[in-house]
Design a protein around this nucleic acid. Sequence first.
DNA 1: CCCTGTGAAGCCATTCACAGCT
DNA 2: AGCTGTGAATGGCTTCACAGGG
Lengths: 234, 234
Amino acid sequence: MTRRSTLGARNRGIPEATVARLPVYLRALHTLADRGIVTVSSEELAAAAGVNSAKLRKDLSHLGSYGTRGVGYEVQYLVYQISRELGLTQDWSVAIVGLGNLGRALAGYGGFASRGFRMAALLDADPAIVGERINGLTVEHIDKLEHVITDCGISIAVLAVPASAAQAVCDRVVASGVTSILNFAPVVLTVPDGVDVRKVDLSIELQILAFHEQRKAGGPAGVEHEYLEAVDGQ
Amino acid sequence: MTRRSTLGARNRGIPEATVARLPVYLRALHTLADRGIVTVSSEELAAAAGVNSAKLRKDLSHLGSYGTRGVGYEVQYLVYQISRELGLTQDWSVAIVGLGNLGRALAGYGGFASRGFRMAALLDADPAIVGERINGLTVEHIDKLEHVITDCGISIAVLAVPASAAQAVCDRVVASGVTSILNFAPVVLTVPDGVDVRKVDLSIELQILAFHEQRKAGGPAGVEHEYLEAVDGQ
DNA sequence: CCCTGTGAAGCCATTCACAGCT
DNA sequence: AGCTGTGAATGGCTTCACAGGG
C-alpha cells in the first residue's frame, strides 16, 4: 500500500476520470453561485452535475477535505479549489489554427475567454482569410506560426484544419513549444511524449449514437444478407 | 459465469469502450483501402488507429473471428463488418437544431453525409435565420420541430442551441420520438431512459488540457497563497 | 514461424455501506 | 441527526502471454 501524506489528501495523481468530471462540477457550482446558493450537499451537487453522490464525494476527496460533515460544501470555496486544481487561476494563451467554418465558430465562442483561456492568435494558410478580423483578432498567415506561438507564449493549440494538413501543422506547433493540442481534424495525431492531445470528432460521436440506435431497433441489420451482396457494386 | 453461444462470438453486449474505438478503426481501414491495401495485420492497423495491437485484437474479437491466423485481416471485409455492427449499412436521418456559427459549421461538414448519415432538417428559432438555405437545405422555424422530426423520420438530433434553450429543445425532440442526441450546449441534459445523449464541450476539453499543462509546469499554483486573498471580498 | 484469438492477471473506476465528525 | 470521507467490494477495461490455426 502506498504511503500518503499524513495530512489528509494532498495527493498528486488525481484519476483521469475524475479530472474529466471536475469541469462539470465547476460549471454546476457556478450556476449555483449565480443563484446565490452558499452551501450545497453532495447529493444536490451530484444531481446538478448528472452523476451519483458517491462518485462526486470520491472525486472531491482526491482534492482534499473541503466539505463539512453534516452540512455540505461551501460553493465559493469549492469553486476556488477546483479552479486551482484545474489550473484556471492562471491564464492560458490559446491559438486557433484553421479558420474555416469550424474555426470561426470556435473563435466566436464566448464561454472561451470566460475562465482562464485567452484567445491569443488565429492562423490560417488561405490568403483570402489571412488579414480578416475575427472577434477582435487579425488572422495571421501560418508562415508566422513559430513566431506567433513563441511571442504570445502559447501552450495550447486548437487545430481546426483539414485532415490532410493536421499532422504537419501538429508537428510545427509542437516544434514551437506547444504541449497541449485540441484536435478537431478527423485523424490520429502522432506526438512526442509529454504532449497531450484531445480529440473532438463529430463523425465518431454520430457513429457511436448510430450503434446504440440500431441496438434499440434490434441488433445489426444484414445478418441474413451476405457480405458479397453488399459489396457487389461498391 | 454467463453462458455464451457455442459458436464463437456472436455476442450482444460489446463493451462501450470498444464501441467508441470502432469508428477509429473504420476510418483507418478506409484510409488503407484508398491506398489499395488488401490485407492488414493487427499490429499495422493498431498503429494506424493509435492503439496497441492487443487491444485492437480484443476489440475485434467481440465482433467475431474475422481475421486469418498467420495473415491478418482483409481490409474490405473488416470495413463491412464494422460498418454493419455500427449500424452504418442503413441511413440515419439527422436534424441540426440551432444554426449559429457552430450549427452552420456542422451543417457544412462534409464527412457527415459521407457514410450513413443524411442531414435531413435544419431548425432555428431566429426569424433572421429561418428561410436561409444552407448546404442545400432550407432552415425551418423551430415551431415546426415536431412536424419535421416525424415527417423526416429523424432519430438523431444535433443540438447547437444556446445553453439556456438546450433542455427545452431536448424535451421537445425527445417527445417527438428522437432517441439519440448529440449535445453541443454546455449543460447537463436530463432525458428519459432509452434516450442516449453524447456531449461535446470545447470548454471542458480545454480545462482538461489546462490541468495536465499545469501539472507539467509543477503542480497547482496558489498552494502558498491563501484562498481569502484570492476571493478578497468574500 | 507468423499472427490471431483469448484465458488470466492486473489495473482502474464505480458503487456500497458505514465510521466518524459537526 | 445529517452528511462527508473512505475502506472494501464489485465490475469493467487493458495488458500480458501463449495456445493453436494457417
